[in-house]
Amino acid sequence: MKPLSIVVRTICNIFAWFVAIFGAYVIIHGHLSPGGGFQGGAIVATFIALLLVAHGGKRFFEWVKMDIFTAFEGLGLITFVGIGFLGLSTTFLYNFLALKGGLFGSPVTIGPNAGILNSSGTIALANMAVGLEVVGGLSTIIIFMFLGMRYVMEGGKEGSEDDK
């Protein structure tokens, strides 16, 4: 499919990065503010969809390979299961990092407060793992549907020039 007009592409170039940064913020601050891995991952996948719609498939596949998103998805799920197995000295998915000092181990003030980023133990790590998985998974779905839609719109012709 052809890229959209220069207006759409310019606006996309400016504002798509804010979407990506906001998604990363929602993932990383999942244990402090509303949101988390699933929601932030969906926001970052919106960024991928925005690039794909505005710039078309040819330029998009010059920038990134699709294998990256598939790798993200598998890596996220494996990391989540691995975090679960790391706490196996007590129970599966036990929070073995919280309140121990060190990585994500700071104590927090009890009561309503803004919180600190370096807290909550494996909750933050699991948030990032799930965020990575959702980014990869939703982007894979979007790209697959894009390729399938183009296959239909071009009359079922396989192997066109800008296909991958």
């Binding site: 999942g30 244990h31 402090l32 503010s33 509303p34 988390g36 891995g37 679960g84 599966f92 998915l93 929070n95 919280a98 309140l99 181990g105 700071s106 104590p107 927090v108 407060n113 803004a114 919180g115 807290s119 909550s120 133990g121 494996t122 909750i123 699991a126 948030n127 799930v130």
Partner: peptide, 17 residues
């Protein structure tokens, strides 16, 4: 669990499975 967001601490820790 030292997480200020109680919902996240339920979703990712108490009900992690």
């Amino acid at each position: 669990r030292a997480a200020n967001n109680v919902v996240t601490s339920i979703v990712f820790d108490y009900r992690g499975f």
